[in-house]
């Protein structure tokens, strides 16, 4: 599967969310954008949340270390973490090359979809990146 970046939603803190319907619930697959990965530069460590953790949009989901800097990862949606990409911390080089497919981080069952309106579409996110580059 190749995820289409133009169909994803983005947090201003550079996480992407791919929203799908499954068994009557909305599930967000969450990752970090290629722009952020390039800015972070050479990721060396990643901490992921545990399955079952309940997060609000904007809460810290985990942390990454890249060339001496620790940066938080934020949840773009509210809900419960139902799956974690546990192989990812050991294969961070693949996150650099494939941030939208192999590089997914967690899946979250959305509990409140009101916040989805706050997320940016692809064009607005591109504009934000261009302004901050």
């Amino acid at each position: 599967m190749t995820r289409d970046q133009s169909q994803l939603l983005y947090a201003s803190t550079h996480e992407w969310a791919d929203i799908e319907e499954a068994e009557g619930a909305k599930i967000a697959t969450v990752g970090v954008s290629s722009f952020a990965i390039e800015q972070l530069n050479d990721l060396v460590y990643m901490d992921l949340p545990e399955v079952g953790r309940v997060v609000n949009a904007g809460d810290e989901l985990g942390e990454v270390e890249s060339v001496k800097a620790v940066s938080p990862l934020y949840s773009p949606v509210s809900g419960e973490v139902i799956e974690v990409h546990s192989e990812l911390p050991d294969q961070l080089e693949k996150l650099n090359s494939d941030p939208y497919d192999f590089g997914w981080i967690v899946k979250i069952r959305i509990s409140d979809d009101a916040y989805l309106n706050e997320l940016l579409n692809f064009e607005d996110y591109q504009r934000q990146c261009a302004e901050s580059a």
Binding site: T13, K68, A69, V70, S71, P72, Y74
Partner: peptide
């Protein structure tokens, strides 16, 4: 001399 960083929001 060496330095390290932490980002917040």
């Amino acid at each position: 001399l060496g330095s390290a960083q932490r980002k917040s929001r």
